[in-house]
Computed example of a mutant assay.
Amino acid sequence: MNATKQLLQHRQPMIRFLGKRHTPTSIDHTPHAHPASPTHSLPESFASYRQKAQQHGPLNQQNHISIGAIGGKPGASLGPVEAGKGIFFDRSELPARFQRTPWTQAEIDAIESGGASMHA
């Protein structure tokens, strides 16, 4: 423990800071547009921004209901759900060469024993 104390007393940080720390005297906190903004301007108000904003569809509720987004109509009214040609919903619908191969009893025993049954 004494050796550690002696080592830490002469420790010198590898990072060198230039100058003394100081806080800026004046900081401009006024809102401004992001430099990568396409319009380079701020919206007039949050309400006007929300009218034009899109996030997975329009955010304003009037257009949301009239468009018929998810939840606006019952699922039965959307029609039948059938896979197109060459599209499969489950691996069991694929040709036999792409389906899951069944586990053999030797594989099941090896997994259950943690591999010990392979060396017995």
Results as ranks from 00 to 15, higher is better:
P43G: 07
P43S: 06
E44N: 05
E44A: 11
S45W: 09
S45H: 08
S45C: 09
S45R: 09
F46S: 09
F46N: 06
A47E: 14
A47G: 12
A47T: 08
A47S: 14
A47M: 09
S48I: 08
S48F: 02
S48R: 07
S48M: 06
Y49T: 01
Y49G: 01
Y49K: 05
Y49N: 05
R50E: 11
R50N: 11
Q51Y: 03
Q51F: 06
K52Y: 09
A53W: 07
Q54V: 14
Q54Y: 14
Q54W: 13
Q54N: 13
Q54C: 13
Q54R: 12
Q55N: 15
Q55E: 15
Q55A: 12
H56K: 10
H56S: 15
H56C: 15
H56A: 14
H56Y: 07
H56D: 15
G57D: 07
G57H: 01
G57V: 01
G57P: 13
P58E: 04
P58W: 01
P58D: 00
P58A: 02
P58T: 03
L59Q: 03
L59H: 00
N60M: 06
N60I: 03
N60T: 08
N60R: 10
N60Y: 01
Q61H: 11
Q61E: 14
Q62K: 12
Q62W: 09
Q62E: 15
Q62T: 09
N63V: 05
N63R: 08
N63Q: 12
H64L: 11
H64W: 07
H64K: 07
I65M: 13
I65W: 14
I65P: 08
I65V: 14
I65E: 15
I65L: 13
S66V: 10
S66N: 13
I67S: 11
I67E: 10
I67D: 06
I67N: 04
I67M: 04
G68C: 03
G68M: 00
A69V: 14
A69H: 15
I70G: 05
I70K: 05
G71N: 05
G71P: 01
G71W: 02
G72T: 03
G72Q: 04
K73W: 12
K73E: 08
K73D: 04
K73P: 04
P74Y: 02
P74E: 00
P74S: 08
P74C: 08
G75A: 10
G75V: 07
G75H: 04
G75C: 02
A76P: 01
A76L: 05
A76H: 08
A76R: 05
A76F: 05
S77A: 13
S77R: 06
S77M: 05
L78F: 10
G79W: 01
G79M: 00
G79S: 03
P80R: 01
P80E: 00
V81T: 09
V81L: 02
V81A: 02
V81H: 02
E82K: 06
A83K: 08
A83R: 07
A83Q: 11
A83M: 12
A83Y: 14
A83W: 13
G84L: 02
G84M: 00
K85C: 03
G86A: 05
G86M: 00
G86P: 03
G86C: 06
G86H: 11
I87D: 07
I87G: 02
I87C: 12
